[in-house]
């Protein structure tokens, strides 16, 4: 696979959120503010790239029968490391993201890439695939976070955008808004972006 293909795949054609629809729980839950979304994206990209690298390094010595538990141990190790780092150096953000940090370990994207790509490709390409898929996830959660925060709280990155009189549509920072917005975004992404890129 060419390098440019890896990136096109991760960000557009097989975008984990907009196309594959995996790893959604964290996207819906954490995207109520832009800051949370970006932090989460960085955490996920970190774990994704690092576990892809390690799993790829181990691919020739990993027995097929126990590959899934081994993947899980590797991924869980990196997730726990991220947890510890955030608790020690970014306490408020750690509390804001709450249970979704340990839940990165069951984020389908990471296990899926380990199984589909990292266990069968070189370390370099696996790292790139991690970055590409991570960016696909990151772009999706950032767009959702931006829209939800602007319409739902009238702010961006915590900075109030509009004057006192603006009544934010709180629906959008609540669960229903997340579901609906994501549905709309997927519909848009599918028709506009994917079509254009396959031509």
């Amino acid at each position: 696979m060419k390098i440019s293909d890896i990136f096109k795949n991760g960000i557009i054609k097989q975008n984990p959120i907009f196309v594959q629809l995996i790893g959604m729980c964290s996207v819906l839950a954490v995207s109520s503010s832009l800051k949370n979304s970006v932090t989460m994206a960085i955490a996920v990209i970190g774990v994704l790239v690092l576990s892809n690298i390690v799993i790829s390094m181990l691919r020739k010595v990993t027995p097929e029968k126990i590959r899934i538990p081994i993947f899980i141990v590797v991924i869980a190790t990196f997730v726990t490391l991220v947890e510890m780092l955030m608790k020690a150096f970014m306490q408020p953000m750690y509390q804001a993201l709450g249970i979704f940090i340990p839940l990165i370990v069951v984020n389908c994207i990471i296990l899926a890439r380990a199984e589909a790509f990292a266990s069968k490709n070189s370390v370099f390409k696996s790292a790139l695939d991690g970055v590409a898929m991570g960016l696909g996830y990151g772009i999706a959660i950032t767009i959702l976070g931006t829209i939800r925060e602007i319409i739902g709280s009238g702010s961006l990155w915590g900075i109030q955008l509009f004057g006192e009189g603006f009544q934010p549509a709180a629906l959008f920072v609540a669960p229903p808004g997340a579901f609906i917005l994501l549905g709309i975004l997927i519909a848009i992404f599918r028709t506009v972006v994917v079509k254009r890129f396959s031509e």
Binding site: P63, I66, I70, V74, A76, T77, L81, M84
Partner: peptide, 20 residues
Amino acid sequence: ILFLVAAVSAGVLAFANEVT
């Protein structure tokens, strides 16, 4: 093999825990 991988992981985490 599984035990070995788990042991390495536990070791790494124990170290990180000491630090953080």
